[in-house]
C-alpha cells in the first residue's frame, strides 16, 4: 500500500507485455476467430456463427471430458494435500538428512513429463514392470490397458508420485518459518501433538497451502502429456481429459472450428477458477498482514 505511484514504471513492464502479447494475445485472438468459422484447409474460412459453441455445449463428449477432469482434479487434491502435509511434518529439521530429502523429493518434478509417462507406462506393465508384475504375482488382475479402473489407478498413482513433493516442499517451507519459541510455549502449556498442529503449524502453512491448492488444481486441470503417454486417453475414452480431447480434435481430426470453440470454453473455466483462487489469495494476504 505504501508504494509510490509512478506511471513511468510502465516502461519497465513493457518488454514483458510485448513478449506475452506475442505469445498469448495473438494466439488467443486467433482462436476466437477460428471459433466462429469453418475451414477445409488452405486458409479458406467460412462464417459459422455460434454453431460450434452450441455443438460443444451440447456435446456429450465435452461434458464427459469436463466431468472426468473435475473428478480427477478433486481426487488429486484430496490425496496430495493431506499426504503432502504428512510428508512435510515428517521431514527431518537438521543435518544432512534435510538436503538429501529435499533433493530426492524434488527429483520427480524435474523429469520431462513424457518421461514421467514412460516411466509409469513401463512400471505398470504386467510383463516387464515392477508394479504390474508384483500386483499380478499377489493375485490381483491388473491391466491398465484394458481396464478403465486400473487405468485411473495408474494415472492417479503417477500424479501422486509426480507432484506430492511440490505440496510437501511448500508446507515444509511454511513449517521451518515457525520460531522454536512457539513450540516451547506449547510445551509449557502442555499442548497435545494435535493442538500443536492445529493452532501453530496449520496457521503457518495456510498461505503456502493456498498456493499449493492453486497450482495443483490448475496443473491437474490442464494435464496432457503424462496420461497421454500412459494410456493415450483409453481404454475407450475413460482417461480422455480436456486437453487430450482438445488436441485429439485439433490435430487428430483437424476440426479447427470446434476445437477453437472448445478452447474458449476451457479457457473461460480456467479463467474463472484462477480469478477465484487469486482473489481468495490476495484477500488472505491482506488480512494476514
Amino acid at each position: 500500500m505504501d508504494r509510490p505511484t509512478n506511471q513511468k514504471a510502465w516502461f519497465l513492464v513493457l518488454p514483458v507485455l510485448l513478449l506475452v502479447a506475442f505469445s498469448a494475445v495473438i494466439p488467443l485472438m486467433t482462436v476466437v476467430n477460428y471459433s466462429v468459422q469453418d475451414t477445409f484447409g488452405n486458409n479458406e474460412f467460412f462464417w459459422a456463427g455460434t454453431a460450434w459453441f452450441e455443438e460443444i455445449l451440447h456435446s456429450q463428449r465435452f461434458h464427459e471430458a469436463l466431468a472426468r477432469n473435475l473428478i480427477f482434479s478433486a481426487i488429486i487434491l484430496a490425496i496430495q494435500i493431506p499426504l503432502g502435509i504428512v510428508v512435510a511434518l515428517s521431514m527431518p529439521r537438521k543435518g544432512i538428512g534435510v538436503s538429501i530429502c529435499l533433493v530426492l523429493m524434488a527429483l520427480p518434478l524435474l523429469i520431462p513429463w513424457n518421461v514421467v509417462g514412460t516411466i509409469w507406462q513401463v512400471f505398470g506393465r504386467v510383463d516387464i514392470g515392477l508394479l504390474g508384475h508384483t500386483l499380478e504375482a499377489i493375485g490381483i488382475d491388473y491391466n491398465y490397458v484394458r481396464d478403465p479402473l486400473d487405468a485411473w489407478f495408474t494415472i492417479i498413482l503417477m500424479d501422486v508420485w509426480h507432484w506430492t513433493s511440490l505440496v510437501a516442499l511448500l508446507c515444509y517451507a511454511g513449517l521451518v518459518s515457525i520460531p522454536e519459541a512457539y513450540y516451547q510455549a506449547a510445551r509449557i502449556d502442555g499442548a497435545s501433538r494435535w493442538a500443536v498442529f492445529r493452532y501453530i503449524q496449520l496457521p503457518k502453512m495456510n498461505r503456502v497451502l493456498l498456493i499449493a491448492v492453486l497450482l495443483r488444481f490448475m496443473d491437474s486441470f490442464m494435464i496432457y502429456t503424462e496420461p497421454f503417454v500412459v494410456t493415450g486417453g483409453g481404454p475407450g475414452n475413460s482417461t480422455t481429459f480436456l486437453s487430450i480431447d482438445l488436441v485429439k480434435m485439433a490435430v487428430g481430426q483437424f476440426d479447427l472450428g470446434p476445437a477453437a470453440a472448445m478452447s474458449i470454453v476451457y479457457f473461460l473455466v480456467v479463467l474463472l477458477f484462477s480469478w477465484i483462487f487469486y482473489t481468495v489469495m490476495t484477500n488472505f494476504e491482506r488480512g494476514g498482514q
Binding site: 482462436v31 496432457y224 476451457y266
Partner: peptide
Amino acid sequence: TNRMAPPAVFALP
C-alpha cells in the same frame, strides 16, 4: 492467467 492457461489451448494457433 498465462501461467494457468492450458498449453493445449495455445498449441492450436
